[in-house]
Design a protein around this nucleic acid. Structure first.
Length: 205
DNA sequence: TGCCGGATCCTG
DNA sequence: AGGATCCGGCAA
């Protein structure tokens, strides 16, 4: 079975935690000047709506965050700490600001350097500001089915969850278990989440 | 216009 | 544990 079909826009037009979980095991592909670079997504985080204090969109619609308010299936790439780029996939219907941060990949052939961590994976795949707003169903940066058909959900026993990283300033929002990892993957960034079942509050808004 | 702090990573 | 180092957001 050929699992190299690009995920369609409708894939991203769903509740963000659901998309974040369903992105695990998919293949992120970058078509750059040096050819294709790809990796299997093993870690994600959900940033959900205007009330999520950990989300850039919580300060409202600005030049930087406008992409998060736009239609689903586009890349939101931002620059942080004067050094690093981070890649997100925009989710949910236009007007509702939400995205999934891609935090780690299992590297595939011809990927140089480490891919555990959102900054490292962008460096390894050659992802920078020029890809902000890129169509994730397009020709330069896309996500394929990977481990399983588009419509097949992640088997629940493969999921590990934890609190989001680096957002302790966000109060109670930092404690929400909106970080998602492939259970047992050696490619997940540190600190690894406790490997316990996902609580029901996962889909809470 | 200036200042503060960040969805990170590397070094010591 | 602390520094790097740019830029966005907000106050003035």
């Amino acid at each position: 079975m050929d699992l190299t079909r690009k995920l369609p826009r409708a894939f991203y037009n769903r509740p963000t935690c659901q998309v974040a979980i369903d992105l695990l095991g998919r293949r992120l592909v970058r078509a750059g000047p040096d050819g294709l670079r790809a990796g299997r997504i093993v870690e994600t985080e959900a940033y959900v709506g205007p009330d999520d204090r950990a989300s850039h969109a919580s300060r409202g619609r600005t030049a930087r965050t406008s992409i998060m308010f736009g239609p689903p299936g586009y890349a939101y790439v931002y620059f942080i700490y004067g050094q690093h780029y981070c890649l997100n996939a925009v989710t949910e219907p236009e007007g509702f600001p939400a995205a999934v941060l891609i935090r780690a990949l299992e590297p595939e052939a011809s990927v140089p350097g480490r891919t555990d961590g959102p900054g490292r994976l962008c460096r390894a795949l050659g992802i920078d500001r020029s890809l902000n707003g890129a169509d994730l169903t397009g020709a330069w940066l896309w996500i394929e089915e990977g481990d399983r058909p588009c419509e097949a959900p992640l088997p629940p026993e493969q999921l590990a969850t934890g609190r989001r990283i680096g957002v302790d300033y966000a109060g109670e929002w930092a404690a929400r278990p909106w970080r998602f990892c492939l259970r047992g993957s050696r490619w997940v960034s540190l600190p690894r989440p406790a490997e316990v079942p996902a609580p029901a509050s996962m889909n809470a808004r």
